[in-house]
Design a protein around this nucleic acid. Structure first.
Lengths: 195, 195
DNA sequence: CGAAAATTTGACATGACTCAACTGGAGTGG
DNA sequence: CCACTCCAGTTGAGTCATGTCAAATTTTCG
């Protein structure tokens, strides 16, 4: 609980009363490993904040290949942005990679909070400003870096959970096949040990 | 001028007085063809709204290859998001592909407006929510679609200006080389005429 | 333990890139 | 207004990064 308020406090200052109101708009929920918070075709009702565990947000294309959009661990947000803001059926899945506890807030509650506590609209604005920058950066990385280089950046970005993620999911985040990922890692190890 | 207010009015309703205050925070500026609004290493002072003409936002990687982030024509916004929100030197260029007239607002003015007219913070929040969705979608397109398919989507997305953009810039937006783009187009034409 | 899933490995295929040469139009200066 | 240059665009040959398919191996977990 405190974790969420700390996250908010990084960008805006809330009074005790505002904190109380805010907390009332969230509910805590717990998902077992491998359970789905969201499936393709469903409406993403909630914006979720991870207290513990790991979530994966991904899409499946026409060839049934998975494409991972993001991972979320303790202290990070997750959701299907398109579906959440439009409240229309989305195309992505969100699954718990391990038992995961979250605090979640519906879009409706969120908009109400924006009216009651304008500072929260500011907080959210800042959150997505940064998210937009990160997404642009990642897209650029995909355009200009080799798979190997992208992998190294990935390890930095997700250093807290890198050893808990299945390789196939890392590959799908990097935009390469699991087979190629495996060969690439082997190659990197070989050339590293040659030094 | 009216164009900007209409753009805002799509998401929030301003009073005449608020509209007046808002307009005072923008200045109009005009750039000749091939002139730069922003260069790598500079701070992106302004968020710009295009009244006429076309802007291109791109980055140059270590191999001196260009990567186009976006084009902006009449009624669209442009800027280096990272640099604009952090007010730190950025890595992207913004250049006018033809003579371009814009309305621009500094980050400082923008933040002032957010305090004076909270509805404008809401407007901006909605703007970047959508921008985030579009960027995620584009990243996914890059991951799951072939260059050919990406090209077709590009033509829809930028149907208003597709014939005014140099091919090398379209190629760099699609994440392919101009040579490959040229060959691809030729191939597409051939297989189309065979029908 | 046994089945299913994840990972590894190898042979081969391919989409996209590089380099280089050529063409044709756009702008520039004399 | 011509001659010249300089980009943008095209095209071809060869290459490379990554994908595909298939099989073997290891790990996970009921």
């Amino acid at each position: 609980m405190r974790l969420l308020l700390d996250n908010v406090a990084k960008f805006v200052n809330l009074s005790k009363e505002e904190e109380r109101i805010l907390m009332e708009s969230f509910v805590i929920d717990k998902y077992p490993a491998k359970s789905f918070l969201l499936r393709e075709g469903e409406i993403c009702k909630d914006n979720v904040f991870v207290l513990s565990g790991i979530l994966k947000n991904y899409m499946v294309d026409d060839d049934l290949k998975e494409h991972t959009l993001s991972f979320a661990s303790r202290g990070w947000w997750s959701g299907d942005m398109y579906s959440f803001i439009s409240q229309q059926p989305g195309n992505s899945f969100i699954v718990a990679l391990e038992e995961t506890t979250v605090m979640k807030q519906t879009r409706e509650e969120q908009l109400k909070i924006f009216d009651r506590i304008p500072k929260m609209e500011r907080f959210y604005r800042i959150l997505i400003e940064r998210s937009l920058v990160a997404t642009q950066q990642r897209m650029l990385n995909n355009m200009q870096l080799s798979a190997e280089e992208r992998y190294l950046r990935f390890m930095e970005r997700y250093s807290d959970i890198k050893y808990q993620l299945p390789q196939k999911d890392i590959a799908s985040y990097l935009g390469i096949t699991p087979q190629f990922f495996s060969k690439m890692k082997a190659r990197m190890l070989r050339s590293e040990s040659k030094l």
